[in-house]
């Protein structure tokens, strides 16, 4: 069921762009006084309805999307706002700043075997399957997983996989 969306734009060109974005996300632009959601291109001091702002900043500010947001993101954002929620870009989706090379503390760096195990967990393998795949005992698998959880500061296997990925992204350098 498409939402009824009001458009507040500074000029006709911007209005056309906003209309296209809304329609591209599968919703209808209307001129009624009580739309489900409003979209706008400048900050509204006191909008009468839940409002989605399009802006150049990709900073993770509430209820704000960049102009190049995907139709899926726009659709999800409009529905969330209409349901009384607020939205925020995930940090990884916003632009990153200029960062320093980071290095983990020596005691938390993984061994090659631990990398094999975390990759296997990430691929959805059970402990038994990991033991078979790496030709090690189930006991050794459990030992590696304990060590992984400790080194990555994770409580669950899923958290460990996520943290290992994040670390790889941050620490892998092309030289």
């Amino acid at each position: 069921m498409p939402l009824l969306v009001g458009v507040l734009a500074t000029d006709e060109t911007r209005r056309a762009v906003l209309t296209k974005l809304v329609e591209g996300a599968g919703h209808r632009v209307v001129a009624t006084a009580q739309p489900d959601v409003l979209v706008c291109d400048t900050k509204q001091a006191s909008a009468p309805r839940p409002t989605l702002l399009f802006s150049d900043q990709s900073s993770p500010t509430e209820n704000r999307l960049p102009w190049d947001a995907s139709p899926r993101q726009i659709d999800a954002a409009l529905r969330a706002l209409a349901a009384g929620l607020s939205i925020r870009l995930a940090r990884s989706a916003s632009r990153r700043g200029f960062e320093e090379l980071t290095e983990s503390a020596v005691q938390s760096i993984l061994t090659p075997r631990e990398l094999d195990v975390i990759d296997a967990i990430g691929a959805g393998l059970s402990n038994k399957a990991i033991a078979r795949e790496l030709a090690i005992s189930l006991h050794t698998v459990k030992f590696h997983i304990e060590s992984l959880l400790r080194k990555l500061g994770a409580r669950t296997r899923a958290e460990a996989v996520a943290k290992a990925l994040e670390r790889r992204r941050k620490e892998t350098v092309e030289l």
Partner: peptide
């Protein structure tokens, strides 16, 4: 440039 992507690893 050496042409490698590297990640810190604990020596076995």
């Amino acid at each position: 440039w050496l042409g490698v992507a590297l990640q810190p690893i604990a020596v076995p």
